[in-house]
Write a protein that binds this DNA or RNA. Sequence first.
DNA 1: CACGTTATCTTACATCTGCAAGATAACTGA
DNA 2: TCAGTTATCTTGCAGATGTAAGATAACGTG
Lengths: 207, 207
Amino acid sequence: MKDDGVPSGDRRVRRTRAALARALLELAEERDLSRISVSDVAERAGVSRTAFYDHYRDVHELAEAACTAMIDDLIGFLPASGPDPKGEGPETLAAFFASLAGHAGLYRGLLGPRGSAHVTDHVRRRLAAAVRDRLRREAAGRPSGPAGSPEESHDVLAAFVAGALIGVASDWLQRECPQSPGRMAALTWPLLSALDPGGRGDAGVPA
Amino acid sequence: MKDDGVPSGDRRVRRTRAALARALLELAEERDLSRISVSDVAERAGVSRTAFYDHYRDVHELAEAACTAMIDDLIGFLPASGPDPKGEGPETLAAFFASLAGHAGLYRGLLGPRGSAHVTDHVRRRLAAAVRDRLRREAAGRPSGPAGSPEESHDVLAAFVAGALIGVASDWLQRECPQSPGRMAALTWPLLSALDPGGRGDAGVPA
DNA sequence: CACGTTATCTTACATCTGCAAGATAACTGA
DNA sequence: TCAGTTATCTTGCAGATGTAAGATAACGTG
């Protein structure tokens, strides 16, 4: 009935949601998200269809919840806290692409043309929020920006970087990942570095 | 029955498709795409539901076809052919954002969280293709790149820029466009310039 | 114009959707 | 343990989906 972000204390709720999430992730590896019905998920989860609707509005909303942990993993590989002195950016970025590749089928299904706009938007928001936090933290430690409102440009830069990463990732996934994660990181890292507002392009603010 | 890219010679086909596209664009201004059924579109278009399925698999596929002209408009504002000597980049970019704002409700509905992954992917592909063409053309006129395969890095840069623009645009649209198109262009242009592989960041390759 | 082609319409069907009411049973807190 | 809460299940419904077969009529071609 209630669906806060807080994990419910009731075992039944946890059990049902876990079963639904598990079932969806299984099915999403097997076929396109657009070919997965609420009935399919409920049946595979061993749960009644009405129980599904007690928790989620539709398959997309479940998909968002179901892949939250994976997405948080993904985002964890991004910020690489600190001013990145030893150029460890490319390595963590490689881990980002490796994590994508590790669930390639799933991400391809969720982020691709037959995927879910809901999930894609969710991923972009979280990525953008992570980048924005990083920018704010770094700006606080620096003397002062050049001019204008830093908030505004931070928001734009965060949306820019988040979209860019999703663009590169989607493209790579849809081509069946011809390049290795390390190669993708090597190709993408210079682009992120070039956007660094603080320096000359050697340290990586945005990622 | 057949649905190539070629505009059919049969009047009936053109009439039906035009009616469906018109109906969908109307409805998309009124409510979320997820609340628009095939029946709704067919009824408003004055066409039988089976006729719909003779042309499109679902609402998303129609949406892609229906907004193609708008999207081409949008892309037309991007390349700004030539090495952009007088810094006219920000102005054409402002036209890009203005075009978005001109159909804000529609784009918000199509590209947003309740929109269509199919349409979003289509837009990103076309944007990326436009950027890639531009990169290729410019690379052909320049002496030679530093090293590595230029194709690979062009593909990545194109996907990067296309995603970034969609990211910025989506974010702006979902916030109800608080900044003017000119302001958005001013904020976004430096980011695109920074990615320019040919120069020092004053001329705009990617856009 | 007359012909063959074919897009559209009508009707029909099995399945899925989203929701509602009431019964059952599992959980929490005392 | 007991009582109250509440998540789940069952049943039922109106509307939407995706597809099929056959009839009609508009179309392009010769």
